[in-house]
């Protein structure tokens, strides 16, 4: 298991990080301007629905990050290239933070909409479970001292979580139809007006840039840490 990343690659990452950070900042400013000032309030929920522009992209990317994590784990099992494991290890804390953002904004949104902070809505509950899947993955790296072993165990866990997500989603949905009639359908507006779609798209793009920036920073740290521990071992 030797690292196949040349040194100059780290320099390239290093050069991109400030550029991407600035881009992220710029896109967020534009997106937030559109979201907060230059878009109409919802006719049912009023201004409180503006939190959607922060909430929805966070939830999307929390899920997308977990898919990325799982596919990296699968790819690691197939190709045995340790970089895939580093991908998964780098994205995990970011995905966990995005999940927290989605959970917190979701419950802030829930307060005016449902009247409570938490409504055991199927999506929020699945999000909470997703957070625990991230937590389990991150903890594995810390709980197992032997790093080679930790790599294998955490990759297995990443895949288990991926199999588990649809099962949990299905059963929580089923449970939800049983216990929680129609109150939530307010949230999933059937179609979204173009004036709301534009800020949402800009915010999604901002989140994507934010995710990539954070990912590159974490990835750089993981590579350097691996280099240090290898240097210690020799």
């Amino acid at each position: 298991m030797y690292l196949k990343i040349p040194n100059h690659f780290i320099n390239i990452i290093q050069a991109w990080i400030p550029i991407l950070s600035l881009l992220t900042l710029a896109t967020f400013s534009v997106g937030l301007y559109f979201a907060l000032f230059n878009s109409p309030p919802d006719y049912l929920q009023g201004d409180s629905m503006r939190i959607m522009y922060v909430h929805v992209p966070a939830a999307w990317f929390a899920l997308a990050s977990y898919s990325f994590l799982s596919f990296s784990c699968i790819a690691w099992f197939v190709f045995r290239n340790p970089n895939f494991n580093l991908f998964a290890k780098s994205i995990a804390p970011i995905g966990a933070v995005f999940t927290i953002i989605a959970l917190v904004t979701g419950s802030i949104w829930g307060k005016p909409t449902w009247g409570t902070w938490w409504a055991w809505d199927a999506r929020l509950t699945s999000m909470l479970v997703l957070f625990f899947l991230y937590a389990a993955y991150i903890m594995t790296w810390q709980a197992i001292a032997n790093k080679e072993l930790a790599a294998k165990i955490s990759a297995t866990l990443g895949i288990i979580g991926f199999i588990n997500i649809p099962i949990i989603k299905f059963s929580v949905d089923w449970w939800n139809t049983l216990h929680q009639p129609a109150t939530i359908s307010k949230l999933s507006a059937p179609s979204i007006h173009i004036s709301m779609l534009t800020p949402l798209m800009i915010m999604t793009f901002a989140y994507l840039l934010f995710l990539i920036t954070l990912f590159l920073i974490r990835f750089k740290i993981e590579i350097l840490e691996q280099k240090i521990s290898r240097a210690k071992n020799i």
């Binding site: 899947l133 389990a136 594995t140 197992i144 099962i167």
Partner: peptide, 21 residues
């Protein structure tokens, strides 16, 4: 999680989400 020192604690965090269904 056989190899981890505090397995019985952190095992719970992995297992309980799997028990939800």
């Amino acid at each position: 999680t056989l190899g981890s020192k505090r397995a019985s604690l952190y095992k719970t965090i992995i297992v309980i989400p799997l028990y939800i269904p």
